[in-house]
């Protein structure tokens, strides 16, 4: 295993500070901290809070790039603080700011409610006519690995908001749904268990929907999980146009495969244990 350098380098953190009770506008405060190879920006922020300035506020949780809490603007690019090593993006100075295109609650904390409201408005769950089957399932839905592949990539979204911060349309257009909600809509539209595509297209095909995207591609560049929301939105546009031109294939949602005990077992497969529920 290669030895990591134990050398300590002094890096200047230029952190955006803002307290709504005391400050009219945000300002930048500089902290100089000792950085060793392997330290993430999150480690740096913890060092500031523990040793230099206990009033610094930011969101974090898992510290391993799966919860999506610590999205920030690091040297001009929106990304996760826990996932980014300081020495990979800075040599002497690191600018740390809150995610743009969101209101700032305090210091590095963005107000993500607009993004989450837009997400909720698109019904980000499996919707179909037979609601009883969803709420009280009596069998399995069949979905092939190919059908899963069509939307699996878009399920990796951790709702960190980095894509929304990077999008040029969202810089000026408050009402635009944004890459995260639209990618989520595409995730459910392509899920064969779901039948809500036409319902969602009232929003996705509307004035604030997918057509406000112009493929600048910054969302996919910023995404820390490789979700590629830009691709999801272009595929969404394709489906919207096909629906408008009545060229879309009429295919209902996948049906229940079989109820318990009704499937024909393959030979040499042992019988399932008795139901306990």
């Amino acid at each position: 295993m290669p030895e990591s350098s134990k050398a300590v380098r002094q890096i200047n953190f230029h952190v955006t500070r803002y307290n709504p009770e005391d400050d009219r506008i945000p300002y930048v405060k500089t902290y100089t901290i000792p950085v060793r190879e392997g330290m993430t920006v999150l480690d740096g922020l913890h060092y500031i809070k523990e040793n230099l300035d206990a009033t610094l506020a930011w969101r974090y949780s898992c510290r391993m790039g799966v919860c999506g809490s610590c999205g920030m603007l690091l040297n001009g690019r929106p990304t996760l603080a826990c996932n980014t090593q300081i020495l990979h993006i800075a040599t002497t100075d690191l600018a740390v700011g809150p995610l743009p295109n969101f209101d700032i609650v305090r210091d590095l904390v963005p107000d993500l409610t607009t993004m989450l409201d837009k997400h909720r408005a698109l019904k980000p769950y499996v919707t179909r006519a037979d609601e009883d089957e969803i709420n009280d399932p009596a069998g399995e839905f069949y979905q092939s690995p190919e059908e899963l592949e069509a939307y699996l990539q878009f399920t990796y979204c951790i709702k960190c908001g980095c894509c929304m911060a990077a999008c040029p349309t969202l810089a000026t257009d408050v009402r635009y749904l944004g890459p995260m909600p639209l990618a989520a809509a595409q995730r459910y539209n392509r899920d064969t268990r779901d039948d809500g595509r036409r319902e969602r297209s009232k929003l996705t095909g509307g004035a604030d929907g997918a057509f406000r995207c112009h493929y600048a591609g910054e969302c996919s560049r910023a995404c820390p999980k490789g979700v590629d929301p830009a691709k999801a939105i272009q595929l969404l546009k394709r489906q919207l146009v096909l629906d408008y031109l009545h060229l879309a294939r009429r295919k209902g949602p996948c049906q229940k495969l079989h109820g318990p005990g009704q499937g024909k077992p393959l030979p040499n497969v042992p019988a399932a244990p008795a139901r306990t529920v």
């Binding site: 297209s201 009232k202 095909g205 509307g206 929907g209 057509f211 546009k237 919207l240 146009v241 408008y244």
Partner: peptide, 9 residues
């Protein structure tokens, strides 16, 4: 859906 129509054209 109107926006879809305008954009397609």
């Amino acid at each position: 859906m109107r926006e879809t129509k305008y954009w397609t054209w």
